[in-house]
Design a protein around this nucleic acid. Sequence first.
DNA 1: ATAATGGTTCCCATGATGGGAAGGTCAAGA
DNA 2: TCTTGACCTTCCCATCATGGGAACCATTAT
Lengths: 160, 160
Amino acid sequence: MNIGEASKASGVSTKMIRYYESIGLIPAAMRTGSGYRVYSGTEIQLLRFIRRSRDLGFPVEKIEELLALWRDRTRQSADVKRLALEQIDGLKRKVQEMQGMIDTLRHLADACCGDHHPDCPILEDLGHGAVAGIGQHDRGTEAKSRHHSRLHSRRFGNFE
Amino acid sequence: MNIGEASKASGVSTKMIRYYESIGLIPAAMRTGSGYRVYSGTEIQLLRFIRRSRDLGFPVEKIEELLALWRDRTRQSADVKRLALEQIDGLKRKVQEMQGMIDTLRHLADACCGDHHPDCPILEDLGHGAVAGIGQHDRGTEAKSRHHSRLHSRRFGNFE
DNA sequence: ATAATGGTTCCCATGATGGGAAGGTCAAGA
DNA sequence: TCTTGACCTTCCCATCATGGGAACCATTAT
């Protein structure tokens, strides 16, 4: 099985297979005499594990931990569960943050009649000394949302 | 007002102020004789507009459009509202995708007793030929979630 | 005068992913 | 056998918004 076939079988692009090898997430593949990478069932399974983990939003760093546990037959399921729960928490935090944005935007959009007139509460909110709050919108949600934003100035970097 | 004071007044880091200038999102600031950037009320307002828009998840590209509308006194509020609604849609899509991950992880975590034993349904799901589905979990949600993931192989890149 | 703070530019890193070029390999068909 | 097309290899570059840090200059306070 060459890298293209492994890609189709695992759902991981050839680019990413080489990348995962380069960062040491997967062991270096065997090579044919002419330098082609060769894969077999074991590696396909490994790639599928990674693909599935990525689909669940685990960053590569966490996948390393998951793989270590996967390979360790003496692991404790509590360790795996902890990783899963942490992942859930992280996702929930991001969902909440985005939900706060949605709520605010919803309020603003609802207040904008959206016609041919230039008057627009959305732009007024964005432009008018917006540091103190947004006016029409619920203060509790807003304060919480902004607080969160300020904690992470790199607000969504590498969140998956 | 130098760049540090402008940063404090607007909530935008000095790094980002220079960056926004470099990409042309804001006009080049005036300079003192010795080369320091100088800002006044107008620019602070502009920076706050940008900061607020970023807090609402708008990418810089969309902020350019918002700014163009902000400056255009003959704009139609419908154009602004459309941008806001598009932003809401984009955020909702990402929230749904993450919610799908959360649901799946929740199912898996619930099925894992999380004790000192090595048996773990989470790892079994990740490792066992995961392409066809995940077993215990509801198929509808799963299919939808995976479909979404496959549509965007770069699953969350620059989503804000 | 000197030290501390803060400005300037320039380069680099992030994370996961793709694009693309330049060149080698392999298999199928003329 | 030769060609063609599909595939592989490595290497570099781009993304997006953000920060870190070095080397160097300016301002300000002691």
